[in-house]
Amino acid sequence: MASQGTKRSYEQMETDGERQNATEIRASVGKMIDGIGRFYIQMCTELKLSDYEGRLIQNSLTIERMVLSAFDERRNKYLEEHPSAGKDPKKTGGPIYKRVDRKWMRELVLYDKEEIRRIWRQANNGDDATAGLTHMMIWHSNLNDTTYQRTRALVRTGMDPRMCSLMQGSTLPRRSGAAGAAVKGVGTMVMELIRMIKRGINDRNFWRGENGRKTRSAYERMCNILKGKFQTAAQRAMMDQVRESRNPGNAEIEDLIFLARSALILRGSVAHKSCLPACVYGPAVASGYDFEKEGYSLVGIDPFKLLQNSQVYSLIRPNENPAHKSQLVWMACNSAAFEDLRVLSFIRGTKVSPRGKLSTRGVQIASNENMDAMESSTLELRSRYWAIRTRSGGNTNQQRASAGQISVQPAFSVQRNLPFDKPTIMAAFTGNTEGRTSDMRAEIIRMMEGAKPEEMSFQGRGVFELSDERAANPIVPSFDMSNEGSYFFGDNAEEYDN
C-alpha cells in the first residue's frame, strides 16, 4: 500500500510504541512475548500442572481467558453494579484439565481477579502490559475465525453469508486497541457500523446529549479505520460520505453494504499476525530463551520457528480426527482463516481442507461434555516452508469459486491468482447506482469489472525454506488448481455463540 510509510507498523501498534527502528520493534515485541511466557509459567505453578498438562491447549485457553477477564475493567465495573446470582464479580476462573488415573478430569478453578492481575503485572515488570493482553485477544479471535462461520451475524446486519472472507476479527472485544483495529476485516468494521446506525434509528437519543457526542466521535473513528483499509480513492470518498452524514440511517447502511461487497474484489488491507497460545510461549521462556534479547516478529519467520520446536497437546472428542484438529489450530496460529487453501497447503506441506470436510468441533470443551471418553493427542503445528504475512489485500483475480465463501483475504505475501467468483459478486451490483453516491458507485463498479483474471497478485513473492531466515531465496510455489480455494466452501461450520 502506498501510504505504508505514514502508518505505524503493526509491531508498533502491538507494543504501543512511538516510531521505533526494526531492532527496537523486535525487542519490544519480544518483551511482550516474554511477559506472556513468564505469566503462563507462574500460572502453571499456581495450578500445580504437570509439564504435559501445561502444554494442553484447553488449559492455555482457560488461563488466557482468566487474565483477560481480570483486566476487563468495563465488564468488571458492570458486574459490580449489576450483581447477578451466583456470579462473584471479583473472581474469575474456568475449567482446568488434569490427568488422573490414566483419565482426563475437569476441575473448575476460581481465583481472585486481583490475584491474577498481581501475577500478570509481576510477570511483566510491574506494568499492565496491555500489548500482551491484546495479543491474547487476537489469538482467540484468530481461533474463532478458523472455527466458526459468522453466517447468522452477517444475515442479521443485512449482509450476504458468502462475504465471510471479510469477517476477520469479528469476535475481537471493543477494547483491543490499535492492534485489534489493524486485524479487523472490512466486513467486521461494516458490521460494527451498521449495528451502531441501527441503534440510532431505533433509539432517538442515541446521537443526542453528552453521551451522543461520545457516540458520534466513536462512529467517526470507526469510519476512519474502515476508510484506511480501502485502497481505492472511490471507496475512500464513499467512506467520507458515510462519516460526514448528519443523521446516519438506511442510506448509510446501503452504502456500507455496497462497500463491503466491493471489497470482495477491490480488497481492503487487513493486517495478519501470528499470535500463538500462551502454552507455546511459556515452555520456550522456561527453556531459557530470551525473546527480548533475541527479538521477535509476528509477521516473519519467528512464529514458524517457534511452532517448529513446540509440543502442544489437545483434548480430542471420541469421533474427532486429531489431524483435522491440528489443521484448525495451525490455521489459527498463522492467522489464515480466509487465505486461499492452495497457498496454505503449499506452505504447510500437507493438504489443507475446507472447514466442512474437517471432523472436528471447536477447541474448547463445553462444561456439560462427558470427560470419560476424552483422549488427548499432539497437535501437528509444523510447516514445510515459511512466508511473510501481508497486510495488503493483493490485486484481484477471477477463479472458480464456491457456493460458500466467494473470495479470499490473503494472509501471506505469496504470488498467486486470487480466487473470487466474479459473476456471483457482480450480480449483486445491478441497477442500484442512484442517489448521492452514484458517481462513486459507478466508478467502483467500473474498477471491479476491469479486474483481470490473468493478473498475478504479489508478483514474484515466494515462500522460503525454514533454514532461509533472511528470506534470501524465494520459492514461487505451484498450486494444484483442481483443489478448492475457499475454506468455508459450501460450508456447515458451527455458528459462533458468545
Results as ranks from 00 to 15, higher is better:
Met1Leu: 08
Ala2Arg: 00
Gln4Leu: 15
Arg8Ala: 00
Thr15Gly: 01
Arg26Val: 05
Ala27Glu: 04
Lys31Gln: 07
Gly35Met: 07
Gly37Val: 14
Phe39Gly: 03
Tyr40Lys: 01
Leu56Gln: 04
Asn59Arg: 10
Leu61Ile: 12
Leu68Phe: 11
Leu68Trp: 09
Ala70Phe: 02
Glu81Val: 14
His82Cys: 14
Pro83Ser: 10
Gly86Cys: 03
Ile96His: 04
Tyr97Lys: 15
Lys98Thr: 13
Arg106Asp: 10
Val109Thr: 09
Val109Asp: 04
Leu110Asn: 04
Leu110Arg: 08
Tyr111Val: 08
Glu115Thr: 07
Arg118Asn: 01
Ile119Tyr: 09
Gln122Asp: 00
Gly126Asn: 12
Asp127Thr: 14
Leu143Arg: 05
Thr147Val: 13
Thr151Asn: 03
Leu154Ala: 01
Leu154Thr: 03
Val155His: 03
Asp160Leu: 02
Ser176Glu: 05
Gly180Asp: 11
Ala182Asp: 03
Gly185Tyr: 09
Val190Lys: 00
Leu193Glu: 11
Met196Ser: 13
Ile201Val: 15
Trp207Pro: 02
Glu210Asn: 10
Glu220Lys: 08
Asn224Phe: 10
Thr232Trp: 08
Ala233Val: 04
Ala234Trp: 08
Asp255Arg: 04
Ile257Leu: 15
Leu264Thr: 13
Ser269Leu: 03
His272Lys: 04
Phe291Pro: 06
Glu292Thr: 03
Gly295Trp: 12
Gly295Cys: 10
Gly295Tyr: 11
Gly300Lys: 06
Pro303Ser: 11
Lys305Leu: 04
Leu306Ala: 13
Gln308Leu: 15
Asn309Ile: 02
Tyr313Met: 07
Asn321Met: 10
Leu328Asn: 13
Ala337Tyr: 09
Phe338Asp: 00
Leu341Lys: 09
Arg348Gly: 06
Gly356Leu: 10
Thr360Trp: 03
Gly362Gln: 07
Ala366Val: 01
Glu369Gln: 06
Glu369Thr: 12
Ser376Asn: 14
Arg382Met: 09
Ala387Trp: 05
Ala401Glu: 09
Gly404Phe: 13
Ile406Ala: 13
Asn417Leu: 15
Ala428Phe: 14
Thr430Trp: 06
Gly431Cys: 06
Thr433Gly: 09
Ala451Asp: 11
Lys452Ser: 11
Met456Ser: 09
Leu466Gly: 00
Ala472Cys: 03
Pro477Asn: 02
Asp480Met: 05
Met481Asp: 00
Gly485Thr: 04
Phe489Glu: 02
Ala493Tyr: 14
Asp497Ser: 14
Asn498Gln: 10
